[in-house]
């Protein structure tokens, strides 16, 4: 989920800032780039904890090389599951032929995610394979892997450098997906040091070619703590296609609970 992705990455960054400002832990020995990368990821995760749940609306505008556009409208609901991956629910509103279709993900840290699809025309709940990580999400430039949760345990890390970005300084960390079926060999992530927000992710395919770039903008802070990007732009450098995802109407700590993220809840998802 993009949200969790951004939350997590944002959290990664903010944790780092906290740690740095407190001057702790004292460096007993020089940290390796791998340790530093992992530490940043863990810190971000810590910062992301405690959000409870949130809902938001996402609009995707898909644009091909010729500039033709197509729109997707999805509502998302996310429930924090302490100790495991988050639970997420996508409800599709547009295009209208998939209206009412809902997609439930139980993300896991140590095993494959569980995924169910609800098809309203047949009122059928289908358990689907989660191995299709590299597939396109609704024809967009975001893959399921990009949309899915970026659990810390799913990557190994390597801190590369600090560099200026916008008005602040960013850490640049390389991360390597552990999943065999990942479409990527590596990703490079830019996060600002002050608030640990992710501003840019470069995706490199299995052959190490620069496949896609994600740019994040319009950050807003929720509950005085959780940063969410309002606009995510994914550009595919091989095809020239792009997708702009706008996220609005963030609502935190709603009435959502565990029961809305079951197969029974999936059937009444709106």
């Amino acid at each position: 989920m993009i949200h969790t992705l951004t939350v997590r990455l944002a959290l990664i960054c903010s944790c780092l800032a906290l740690v740095v400002s407190l001057g702790w832990p004292p460096p007993a020995r020089a940290e390796t780039p791998e340790e530093k990368g992992l530490r940043i990821a863990r810190e971000a995760r810590e910062r992301g904890k405690g959000f409870g749940n949130f809902t938001a609306s996402q609009t995707m505008v898909l644009r091909n090389k010729q500039g033709q556009e197509s729109k997707r409208q999805v509502r998302i609901k996310v429930l924090e599951a302490p100790g495991d991956g988050d639970k997420s629910l996508f409800v599709f509103d547009e295009p209208r032929d998939v209206k009412g279709t809902a997609f439930l993900i139980h993300a896991h840290k140590d095993k494959a995610d569980d995924q169910w699809l609800y098809l309203p025309a047949l009122k059928r709940v289908k358990r689907i394979s989660s191995s299709n990580r590299s597939g396109s999400f609704m024809g967009s430039e975001f893959s399921y892997e990009d949309m899915g949760s970026s659990e810390v345990e799913r990557f190994t890390y390597k801190y590369l450098r600090d560099e200026p970005c916008g008005d602040s300084t960013c850490t640049v960390v390389e991360r390597f997906p552990l999943a065999k079926r990942s479409a990527y060999r590596r990703q490079v992530v830019w996060q600002d040091k002050d608030e640990l927000r992710v501003w840019r992710v470069e995706y490199y395919d299995r052959k190490n070619a620069h496949l896609k770039t994600l740019t994040l903008a319009k950050y807003e802070k929720h509950l005085d703590r959780y940063w969410q990007a309002g606009e995510l732009t994914m550009v595919n450098h091989l095809t020239g296609k792009s997708t702009v995802l706008s996220a609005t109407d963030y609502k935190y700590r709603t009435k959502l609970n565990e029961r809305d993220f079951t197969r029974t809840g999936l059937k009444r998802a709106r």
């Binding site: 494959a112 569980d114 358990r127 689907i128 394979s129």
Partner: peptide, 9 residues
């Protein structure tokens, strides 16, 4: 019953 393992259903 359905068993879902990687790409198998």
């Amino acid at each position: 019953a359905q068993l879902t393992v990687e790409s198998w259903l």
